[in-house]
Design a protein around this nucleic acid. Structure first.
Lengths: 219, 219
DNA sequence: AACACTATTGACCGATCGGTCAGAACAATC
DNA sequence: GATTGTTCTGACCGATCGGTCAATAGTGTT
């Protein structure tokens, strides 16, 4: 045994697991749970199939582990939002954070999308539990903003869905977007252009005047 | 043989084919091309597996036939749009038409989404050909609207993607939406509410003054 | 060197995959 | 009723599926 007494994970084991998770994320995100095969994941990871099962136990365990990993990345989004917050800043941050997450973890985002398309067999509890509460609490705050006259009286749930869909589109439909634009991938310039477009349309569309505050180094 | 001389399709044959196509659309839309099995399609259709292949030839032929059928339904969208058109009316129609298509053909929409997620192996030609031209021509007209001062100077491509994503979200992520809302399915009231929200935000966000024309009794 | 434990993997399992095929069942024409 | 062509389907094929296992190789401790 190696000296890693506190944790049961050795450095080498951890490295291999990351290799497998990364390979599995690619395959699952393209073909969904059923469409992905352990052999394809093994090939992608450059390991024999039996080795995948040795480290991950089963196809299902590997899959839910990927889902959990992806969802933990979203926890920070819209975390500190209060009725006193500036809607312009919060929504603008929301848009940029979501867009960044999609660009940073494209396979994870697609994995999530495929899971939802399949009817969310592994995530139904999460959707109708944690995430539902998350949306409800944020919606309540946004509703207060409307009552305070900070923005138009729009349904906050539709607003949240709008931002989700608009930002996710560019990662999950990347094949469509790049096919139509005729480029291999979105450039940094494109991404910034898209962010500004979304900020412009959504903020203005919700009747939120652009924040005049000196955009202090937020965060 | 029946009397259907002009066409090689008998009424009975056509009925069975529709049954199969409908069953296949459900299975493919949930699990993607690889994840769907002919046995599952056969069970869904209530027919023996060999019968599916008798009518459809192969899994791949069945799949591309479904893709083509779905895409033909989109042909009417934004068909007659000119530089003289009223942006408010055109975009409003666009939103409602897209939303209606998603509601009318939810499985077909999900099928398309799964195909894109997989990297569009069967649709890359369509995306970088037909659809690319479609977007380019519409974008050119929208750009003219901006130059005429009818609306803000936004990138028309991002606008088109925004409307696509926002409307498709409610069909392709229906599992997420209903899970969060806590309902079984979206009601007519919800749908109308969403349409109005999208019209409000997108038109206003693009600086399009609401059409004062007598809003003829659509719907 | 002996021992204990982990890591690795080829071989194999029953089940299911997409697809073929021969022949039964059916229908229409003469 | 015999003939012809279409429809239908159980049985079967090789390949691949997720998963098991025993044998082997490697590593750390004593």
């Amino acid at each position: 045994m190696m000296a890693d007494t506190a944790n049961h994970e050795s450095a080498s084991r951890d490295r291999i697991e990351q290799t497998i998770l990364s390979a599995a994320e690619q395959v699952f995100s393209q073909h969904g749970y059923r469409g992905a095969s352990l052999q394809a994941i093994a090939d992608q990871a450059g390991l024999p199939k039996a080795n995948i099962l040795y480290y991950m136990g089963s196809k299902q365990l590997l899959y839910v582990r990927l889902l959990n990993r992806m969802m933990s990345r979203w926890n920070a989004v819209l975390e500190d939002i209060t009725p006193e917050s500036d809607p312009a800043k919060v929504l603008s941050d929301f848009i940029r954070t979501k867009m960044m997450l999609g660009q940073r973890y494209p396979e994870g985002s697609k994995l999530f999308a495929a899971e939802i398309l399949a009817g969310a067999p592994f995530l139904s509890n999460y959707l109708s539990g944690e995430l539902k509460e998350w949306v409800a609490s944020r919606a309540a705050i946004i509703r207060q903003w409307s009552q305070q006259g900070k923005m138009d009286d729009v349904d906050p749930r539709w607003l949240i869905f709008l931002i989700w869909s608009a930002t996710q589109h560019y990662t999950e439909y990347s094949a469509q977007v790049t096919g139509i634009l005729g480029t291999e991938a979105l450039s940094e310039t494109d991404l910034e252009s898209i962010c500004q477009f979304l900020e412009h349309v959504i903020l203005k569309g919700c009747g939120i005047s652009a924040s005049h505050l000196p955009n202090s180094p937020s965060v």
